[in-house]
């Protein structure tokens, strides 16, 4: 492993992110819309059902949403790199495919985490109250973990796609279900059995739960389970992503 190689790949992702203001704004606008529309719209129903403050409940879910969308997208960006020829430049270089994969994924994960942090800051400004400031770093750890996980999944998917045509399919059949069934919008306790099982398979559920318990103290699976599931699945997805990426033909 060459740290310089990983660093320059990481840096490239951050430079590109910092230069594309429209993308930055675009991928924050959607989560904020969800946060305000749903947060305000459901707050009285949620309160009446005895579940407490919906805005408090929803914020960790929307942070996860911002991270999920951005992370998957940074993985998919490999298709752009291929389309715009830049991938060839990287692939003829004397570096291992694993280094390329790790550098890219960490870069994408950092960008996605930054998006999550921006959403969090905006939520804090408009009245979200974390249970304890000491737990915020724990929330960051979960945010980075799911960012890495979904950036790796995005890369794995992108390695199998020829062009951007499949992107809509991925949004509708992978990203949206991951988000809606993760407990980002509603509590997982007391769900109908089928939905309950699906949400336990949905890896994002553990990220939402981890962030939520760090920020608000409400937990469904418990820290240990969240962390174990995410840690193992991130490692596995990185391995699968690297393998598929190494098989990618130009």
């Amino acid at each position: 492993m060459d740290a310089n190689v990983i660093y320059i790949l990481w840096k490239r992702q951050l430079i590109r992110y910092s230069r594309s203001k429209s993308r930055m704004i675009g991928s924050i606008a959607q989560p904020l819309l969800f946060l305000f529309a749903l947060g305000l719209g459901f707050s009285s129903v949620f309160q009446q059902a005895g579940q407490g403050n919906y805005f408090q409940f929803l914020t960790p879910g929307i942070i996860s949403m911002a991270i999920l969308f951005t992370a998957i997208f940074t993985g998919i960006e490999i298709i752009w790199d291929r389309q715009f020829g830049f991938l060839k430049e990287t692939l003829v270089a004397p570096v291992s495919r694993l280094e390329i994969m790790i550098g890219r994924t960490l870069g994408g994960a950092t960008v996605a985490s930054l998006q999550g942090i921006i959403v969090m800051i905006i939520a804090l400004l408009v009245g979200f109250v974390p249970q304890s400031l000491l737990m915020i770093p724990v929330a960051f750890a979960f945010m980075f973990l799911i960012a890495t996980l979904f950036a790796a999944i995005g890369t794995a998917i992108a390695s199998r796609l020829e062009d951007m045509q499949g992107f809509q399919l991925i949004m509708n059949f992978i990203v949206m279900p991951l988000f809606f069934l993760s407990g980002a919008l509603f509590p997982l306790a007391g769900l109908p059995q089928v939905v309950g099982i699906i949400s336990k398979v949905d890896l994002l559920s553990y990220g939402v739960d981890g962030i939520r318990s760090a920020l608000t103290g409400v937990s469904y699976f418990g820290f240990a389970v969240d962390f174990a599931v995410l840690g193992v699945s991130t490692a596995v997805c990185l391995a699968i992503g690297s393998y598929l990426f190494s098989k990618m033909q130009i």
């Binding site: 190689v5 430079i15 594309s20 020829g85 830049f86 430049e89």
Partner: peptide, 18 residues
């Protein structure tokens, strides 16, 4: 096969590091 969003220098630097 250049990265359009990077400067000429940054493209060169990327190559040099790889």
């Amino acid at each position: 096969s250049l990265d359009d969003e990077l400067t000429a220098y940054e493209n060169m630097e990327y190559h040099g590091v790889l």
